[in-house]
C-alpha cells in the first residue's frame, strides 16, 4: 500500500508516493533525482548511501521511506551549497577521491562525526569510518582529511549549526 510520505530534503518539503518499505535510497536517487547518494551493497555494509536524518547519519539503503515521514533529510547535495563545508574543503586539499563513487557517503559520515565530536581521536575516526568501503583504497587520505578538517576548521561547529 502506497501512501504519500512527507518530509524535507535539503530544506525543501517533499511528498513521495511509494510503498512504505521502499528504501529511502531509491526515493532520493530516482524520485527526487538527487544522485550524489549512491547504491553500493543494499545491506548497510559499504556506506555509499549515507545521508543525515534529523542531523544524524543514516544508511539510506536500510532506512524505509515510511520511517522518515516528518523528518529532515540531508544529502551530499545539501551539505553545503558550494562545497564549502570544512570536510569537503579538506577532501579537496588532501585530494581524497579516486573513482569517487563512495565519497559522498564517506563525507556525510565524516561530517556527522565532526558535528558530534569536533576533535576526534584517530581511533574514533577509524571506528566511524570503518563502516565504509572505498575500493580504490583512499582510506589514509580520508583519515588525513578528517584530521585536517578538525584541525583547520574552528568554524566547523558554527558551520554545522548554520545548516537548515
Amino acid at each position: 500500500m502506497a501512501f504519500p510520505f512527507q518530509f524535507t530534503v535539503n530544506g525543501s518539503a517533499v511528498s513521495v508516493d511509494a510503498p512504505a518499505d521502499t528504501p529511502l535510497l531509491w526515493v532520493i536517487r530516482e524520485e527526487l533525482k538527487l544522485t550524489g547518494t549512491k547504491f553500493g551493497c543494499g545491506v548497510g555494509l559499504c556506506g555509499a548511501c549515507v545521508v543525515h536524518v534529523d542531523g544524524k547519519r543514516a544508511f539510506s539503503c536500510q532506512t524505509q521511506v515510511s520511517n522518515v515521514a516528518g523528518k529532515e533529510v540531508t544529502t551530499i547535495e545539501g551539505l553545503s551549497p558550494d562545497s564549502s563545508h570544512p570536510v569537503q574543503q579538506a577532501w579537496l586539499a588532501e585530494r581524497v577521491p579516486q573513482c569517487g563513487y563512495c565519497q559522498s557517503g564517506q563525507i556525510m559520515s565524516a561530517a556527522d562525526l565532526l558535528k558530534r565530536n569536533p576533535h576526534p581521536t584517530r581511533a574514533e575516526i577509524v571506528a566511524q569510518m570503518s563502516g565504509h568501503i572505498c575500493r580504490c583504497g583512499t582510506y589514509l587520505r580520508i583519515l588525513r582529511a578528517i584530521e585536517r578538517a578538525a584541525r583547520e576548521a574552528p568554524s566547523n561547529a558554527q558551520h554545522v549549526r548554520a545548516e537548515p
Partner: peptide, 13 residues
C-alpha cells in the same frame, strides 16, 4: 575531482 566531493559527478547509474 571537485565534482566528487559534492555529489555532482555523474556515473552511469
Amino acid at each position: 575531482l571537485p565534482t566528487k566531493v559534492n555529489g555532482s559527478a555523474i556515473y552511469a547509474i
